[in-house]
Nucleic acid binder design. Sequence first.
DNA 1: ACAGGCGGAGAAACCGGTTCCCCGTATCAT
DNA 2: ATGATACGGGGAACCGGTTTCTCCGCCTGT
Lengths: 355, 355
Amino acid sequence: MARSNVGPTITEVAKAAGVSRATVSRVLNGRTTVDPAIGARVRAQAERLQYRPNLTARYLSTGRTMTVSLVIPDLGNPMFQSVLRSLTRAAESAGYGVLVAEAQSAEKEARIAQDARRQCDAVVLVAPRTVDAELDALITQVAPVVVLNRRLKDPHVASVGIDYGAGVTQLVDHLTALGHRDLLYVAGPERSAAHQERLATLNSIAASRPELSVRTIPGGASMAAGHDVAEEVLASGATGVLAFNDLVAFGLLARLHGLSVDVPGDLSVTGFDGIELSRFAVPALTTVGQEVLDTGAVAWSLLEPQLAATGKAGPVEHALLTPRLIVGDSTGPAPAARASAHAPAADAAPDPAAR
Amino acid sequence: MARSNVGPTITEVAKAAGVSRATVSRVLNGRTTVDPAIGARVRAQAERLQYRPNLTARYLSTGRTMTVSLVIPDLGNPMFQSVLRSLTRAAESAGYGVLVAEAQSAEKEARIAQDARRQCDAVVLVAPRTVDAELDALITQVAPVVVLNRRLKDPHVASVGIDYGAGVTQLVDHLTALGHRDLLYVAGPERSAAHQERLATLNSIAASRPELSVRTIPGGASMAAGHDVAEEVLASGATGVLAFNDLVAFGLLARLHGLSVDVPGDLSVTGFDGIELSRFAVPALTTVGQEVLDTGAVAWSLLEPQLAATGKAGPVEHALLTPRLIVGDSTGPAPAARASAHAPAADAAPDPAAR
DNA sequence: ACAGGCGGAGAAACCGGTTCCCCGTATCAT
DNA sequence: ATGATACGGGGAACCGGTTTCTCCGCCTGT
């Protein structure tokens, strides 16, 4: 019913070629040697009628939709966009399409993922906010699934994690090597697993290095968030700022520029994720991320065997990507340290060229 | 066949509730008053079994997939990402999903769109590169369709255009009001319709205002492109630069900063599109765009009636969004004009070789 | 020459829903 | 009480493919 104006069905092709539907199906799927003459006739008619199989019907009978869903918290974040892009490309080359779903709130994540799974063969879940217990339940429901940017206890589900701890450690080491002792973390969303992991690492670093001061202020995950905390960051007196992610760092840099703060002269700022944008920030952002290894592509490589597998299927894999430090121009010697050893004189003077 | 581990079918629910499949279907779709007792029984069993209808099957029988495709040239461009986001949100609230397809080359656009249409009810086409003749043919094949960011001759197809000409005019007016007489356009991709329209407008402006010098250099559509043309831009001696889009402007600003060029002191730079990022550029970018009106949402509003329409359907609408000038800090008085009143002499002086 | 084997193609079942058609029953009016 | 009507729900067809099963005809081997 309500068939749109889309083309002919396999039945019409069969009629036109004077064969059965089964034969048309066989021919067009390159099945067991059909009589070449018939094959040619079918193909000719299919071509003449511009026949295109109805994918929905095919999916119903084969049970595979050739589609996977990507469930993302925020379509506005380049980090997730890059996942979408690389996943789309990887999936496309295997003949799969990608359906995007945005779970704008943590509560919706589960519901959205379930809905998505109903029309797809698998789900790629970027679910940093759902709590562990719920997540486990969800995962079993929507499998096959790959979980991104989050480390799971459950070894049965594929995941692509990023070693946030290693990333944070690299950033802190970088900053402390530059003489920074007073660090400030502009936090991400409270429920974000990425945030929690970064915070935990920072706390453990702080605990093991008493000479460091590591404070935290609430932030967010957007440029606007970074922009809005600039004054508070300045007021804190910290010399090294670790923004939750590149976007936050970005907004922060913009506002600091407006406030004529010299970065990195007065203040060093780091991001997280290594989005393409970070290279073009002014000043270029020091951050951590993986340029080559692409999360979306890795996710696909973990998902594909699960899709192909006829039976219960083989081993589920995990990937843990370790981000690399990308040194930009947004970090430099701590103001207090400039006078001494390495760095030359000239401290936070009324720097004229604050841009 | 090959039914994944997904839940029970309508038949099982029917059996469990002791009714026919038809009744289960009616109950769950809220059809004509079914006996409340039976309705409750069915619902109870559906709940107990955690029944979720198989969407593929439903689609086959209803002929509607509740999915639309978005065909985009480049998933990496925030401009398109914002379309994706707003379209996704608008579609979601109507119960539709969005399938993304990236047509990485102009040649692929048609093929991708056709493929996409086979599993969707409609296509949103952001096809700035396909030539008019092909586009017309394509459009009739994949209808219902909405074409974005491109003005069409064919009045039968819905489109959301952006008045690029008006945007360019505003930018040029803004720059000339600041005293700029020597303008440089960093071109977009050769085949891009957006580029062509902007270029045509610039040419017509140049023709009608002989006092202006409007030159063009090849560029691109990415931050990297903007970054790479910085030296050439400087060498041109122009004082006002119109970048093809915000990303190009962005890359350009970054490189200019690296070259210690004062923007807007030495050089004014404008973008195009008004992506969120532009507000956070350093310096904040002067650009044109539509903040509130969202292309994707508008596209949906044009598409929805076509989807709902049972018959051939009503009038196809067109939207033409007029971008607004967003003045940032990347534009300022022309250097030559700074000394005097408004905009004195100083024409194309011993221009150090326009490249 | 006849039986067995094999390959090719049609018939039909199936995927899991929706919906038309029709029948049986309950309700209402006469 | 009986006929007309409304309505609820079951049976079955249908959407458009894929795939199994079966049958037919021809080839081959003895």
